[in-house]
Amino acid sequence: MAAFAERFGAQRIMPMPQVNASKDVGVFGEAIGVPTVFWFCGGLEPETVLTALTENRIDSLPSNHSPYFAPLVEPTLSTGVQALVVVTLTWLHST
């Protein structure tokens, strides 16, 4: 989180409520003895997301398995690539 906040600014980092994101992703890391992390890279119109959060209806937003999921290409793509680079460099520098 600190590395993301440093790169993107704390105002762009938003803690998410717990959700059932995957039933099996943790099994993969556990099987080979490495930590696993799952994070969301927002891609919807910010106003839509903020309204849903304010109205406590985060579950109403379309997710990546929904036929209504249509993320904005930019800045979603460039932010996702930057996030992968940040996390990779952070991990490599900590080992």
Rank of each mutant, 00 (worst) to 15 (best):
M1E: 06
F4N: 09
A5F: 05
E6L: 04
E6D: 09
F8T: 01
G9I: 03
G9M: 00
R12C: 07
R12Y: 08
I13R: 14
M14A: 12
P15E: 04
M16C: 15
P17Y: 02
P17R: 01
A21F: 15
D24R: 07
D24C: 06
D24W: 08
V25N: 08
G26C: 15
G26T: 14
V27K: 12
F28L: 12
E30F: 11
A31N: 04
I32Y: 05
I32V: 12
I32Q: 07
V34D: 04
P35A: 03
V37S: 09
W39R: 06
F40K: 12
C41H: 05
G42F: 02
E45Q: 12
E47C: 15
E47K: 14
E47A: 14
T48Q: 15
T51C: 08
T54S: 13
T54N: 08
T54R: 08
R57V: 02
D59S: 03
S60V: 10
P62C: 09
S63L: 13
H65W: 05
P67K: 01
P71D: 03
P71W: 00
P71H: 03
V73N: 13
T76N: 07
T76G: 02
L77S: 10
L77R: 13
S78V: 00
V81Y: 07
V81R: 09
A83P: 00
A83K: 01
V87R: 02
L89E: 13
L89S: 12
T90A: 08
W91M: 15
L92V: 15
L92M: 11
L92P: 04
T95F: 10
